[in-house]
Amino acid sequence: MLGIRTLRRLVGSLRRRGRERDPDDELGFHLAMRIERNTREGMTPDAAARSAHTRFGDIEEVKTAMRKANRPTLKQLLWSPTAIGAIATLLVTVGAGMWFMGGPPGTGGDHAAARRTAEALLHPGSAGGQVQGAVIMTCVVQLDGACTDIDVVESLDTRYGLDNQAAEALAKWRFEPGARHDEPVPVWVTVEMIFTLR
């Protein structure tokens, strides 16, 4: 017999699949309509399909832009009552071989893993000793505590790769999953990683 947790995961997974299918269906409808129109105007079925796809361009690129457009802005996140779940701050102090890291509030006791991740990814001097400040990211904390859909909303540094390193570190964090009315739900969170030179 399926346990309640398994059932919830199954329902969550089906919902996620539904959301992922929507852009395909929407764009598929558009292409089908364009092909029909091309055919009505006298093109052969092959030519009609080719013309519609050429006109549309890169479907994956459009889907990526749609996903990005669907993400809430930082302002919306901060003011949204459903997104209060966890606003985590990770402090990383970069010095001559010295590290300090405060774990994100609400994490499931996996600070050690987070610390190891950061040590592996963030090397003192990797930013040429030039960069300090904050990278602000958003992500969705899934029911298993993993972060998905990570997006850098305020960049600190692309030259030395601190943005990428921060996102890679965040991908390895594990959160306490969010809940609404005692039901576990995926939640949007903002995460600020602060890099300080010492």
Partner: peptide, 29 residues
């Protein structure tokens, strides 16, 4: 199309438009 759909989704997110799934005249979803 590359501008149209991201724009529609952005405007839906900010609340200027609402969206729902239905059937077109030719019964497509």
């Amino acid at each position: 199309e590359g501008s149209l759909y991201p724009a529609l989704h952005r405007m839906e997110r900010v609340g200027w438009i609402e969206a729902s799934w239905g059937r077109s005249d030719n019964q497509r979803r």
